[in-house]
Computed example of a mutant assay.
Amino acid sequence: MNEKIITFLNSGLLEKYLLGGTSIEETQQIESYIARHPEVENAYNTLQFNLEVVAKTNAVEAPKNILNNILEELDEKPVIQLNTTKKYKKWHQLSIAASIAALIFAGQSYYLHDKNQKLSEENQVVVDEIFDLRSDIENNNKKLDAVMQQFKELNDPNTYKYIMQGNSRAKNLKTVAYINPKEKTSMIDVVALPQLPEEQCYQIWAELQGKMVSLGILSETDRQLRAIPYTEDALGLNITIEPKGGNTVASLENSVAEIHLK
């Protein structure tokens, strides 16, 4: 691999291109490198695969409750029907007119008060929903930061990838461990776990100085890339079948998968 290609791969342009942050000129340059150099194409495919691993279980759902029907139309208005069958004197008619005016004024006052009350309640709903939306945005930003951090760790050249496949006790079991001894980080991606009886579970262990240290319980319902405790100088990883809730001592006779670490 020539120095020009090495410089290009170390520039970070591939990662920037994959995340959609390159300019038109940068995009043309990157696509030209991918087309002309197999080394660049392989690096791009690896980055794309790692991004899919990180993102596959971190989908961000859109908010379920969006602002709906803020204002309601009031189609009906108070109607006062007057049926007169007799003639009244002028002063009596004036009295009736004043009474009607008072009723209309009272009706309008009630209508305005009721409308103001509804608007006040609707405004409060809007305020509450805006607060919820801001909270959702903050949570989504935190999730995005976590995804980007995982993506960064996966693409660190010091991160080693270990595939753990099940033995005859759990043929379909498959998990992938990512360990970075320099940054002292460990992650595991649960790809497939055969179903166990309710009274049993899968537990992952680190082999250290002749003893097994628990790194947690693995669950089919928790299929996502997640961090596990980093164990300094670990010689290997082992997955066993244990009683529900986990065990304090590894049941090595029930081991279903193991690997040796570099």
Rank of each mutant, 00 (worst) to 15 (best):
L144D: 03
G166S: 04
N139W: 09
K171G: 02
I137Q: 12
V176I: 11
E121G: 07
Y160H: 15
I188S: 03
Q149P: 00
N180A: 08
T185Y: 02
K182G: 05
A170E: 00
D156V: 04
M148E: 11
I163T: 15
P181D: 08
K171F: 01
I179D: 03
N140V: 05
I179K: 01
L119S: 07
P181R: 11
V176W: 00
I130P: 06
I204S: 12
Q203T: 11
N155H: 10
V147P: 00
L173W: 03
N167S: 11
N167C: 06
R169Y: 12
V127P: 06
L133T: 05
P197C: 08
Y162H: 11
K142G: 01
N167V: 05
V126A: 13
T185A: 00
G166K: 04
Q150G: 02
T175P: 02
T185R: 05
D128Y: 04
I204R: 10
T159V: 07
D132C: 02
A170H: 06
I137T: 07
R134Q: 12
S168C: 03
Q150Y: 07
L119H: 11
Q149G: 03
T185V: 06
K184N: 07
M187R: 14
D189V: 02
E153M: 10
I137D: 08
K182F: 09
A170T: 00
G166C: 04
K143Q: 13
I179A: 01
M164E: 14
Q124M: 08
I204A: 10
Q150W: 00
V126H: 09
E183M: 07
I179N: 01
Y202H: 12
N155P: 11
P197F: 06
K161M: 10
E198H: 10
S186E: 00
D189N: 15
N180I: 03
F151M: 03
N123L: 08
K184M: 08
N155D: 08
R169K: 15
E129P: 02
D189Y: 05
N155K: 08
V191I: 14
K142P: 01
L133I: 07
P194F: 03
P194I: 05
Y178T: 04
F151L: 06
M148W: 07
Q195G: 09
S135K: 14
A177M: 10
K152P: 00
M187E: 03
V147G: 05
K142M: 06
K142Q: 14
E153H: 13
Y162M: 09
D156K: 06
E121V: 09
I137F: 09
E122A: 13
S186Y: 06
E183F: 00
A146V: 00
D189T: 01
A192T: 15
K174C: 11
D145T: 10
P181A: 07
Q165R: 15
A170S: 06
I204T: 13
R134E: 11
E183A: 14
D189K: 12
D189M: 07
D128F: 03
Q150F: 04
T185G: 02
K118T: 11
K184H: 05
Q195L: 12
P194Y: 02
S120E: 13
A170P: 00
K161T: 12
R169S: 13
K174P: 04
L173D: 04
V126W: 05
T175R: 00
M164P: 09
